[in-house]
Amino acid sequence: MKLPNSAHTSRPWLIHKIAPDFHLYDVWALPTPGGPDDFHKLVRQTSGGDTSTSPSWAARMLFEIRWKLGKVFGWDEKKTGVGRRVSTLRDRLPAELRDGPYGPEFPRLPFNSVYLTENDWASEMANRTVHAVMHLSWVEDGKGGYRGQMAVLVKPNGIFGKAYMAAISPFRHLIVYPPLMKDFERTWQAELAREKKSAA
Rank of each mutant, 00 (worst) to 15 (best):
F73D: 08
V130H: 02
A200S: 14
K78Y: 08
S198Y: 05
H40M: 06
T51H: 14
L180F: 12
P4L: 02
W13S: 00
K155M: 10
L153F: 03
T51A: 14
Y177D: 10
G83E: 12
R66C: 08
F39D: 00
L3C: 04
G81T: 11
F111L: 15
T9D: 10
R147K: 12
D38S: 12
L42N: 01
P31E: 04
T117H: 02
F39G: 00
D99L: 14
Q45W: 08
W28T: 03
K41W: 12
M165A: 05
P33F: 07
F39H: 02
I168S: 02
A167E: 01
G83Y: 13
G70L: 07
W57A: 14
A200Q: 14
R92D: 04
K155C: 08
G103R: 05
L69I: 13
L89D: 04
P55G: 06
D120Y: 05
G34D: 01
P55W: 07
P94Q: 11
G158R: 12
G48F: 05
E140R: 14
P12Y: 07
R108D: 13
M125W: 09
S137W: 06
G142T: 00
Q45M: 15
D99I: 11
H135V: 07
Y164Q: 02
N127H: 08
R128S: 12
D99N: 14
W57M: 13
G48S: 11
E96Y: 10
Q149W: 01
E105F: 10
S123E: 13
R194H: 12
W188I: 02
P12F: 09
K155F: 06
V114H: 11
D21N: 09
Y177F: 15
K182Q: 14
I65N: 11
T80F: 13
H135A: 07
E77R: 13
Y115A: 04
G81D: 09
E64G: 15
R98H: 15
T80S: 12
G81K: 07
W121I: 03
G70P: 07
N127G: 07
D91C: 05
F184R: 00
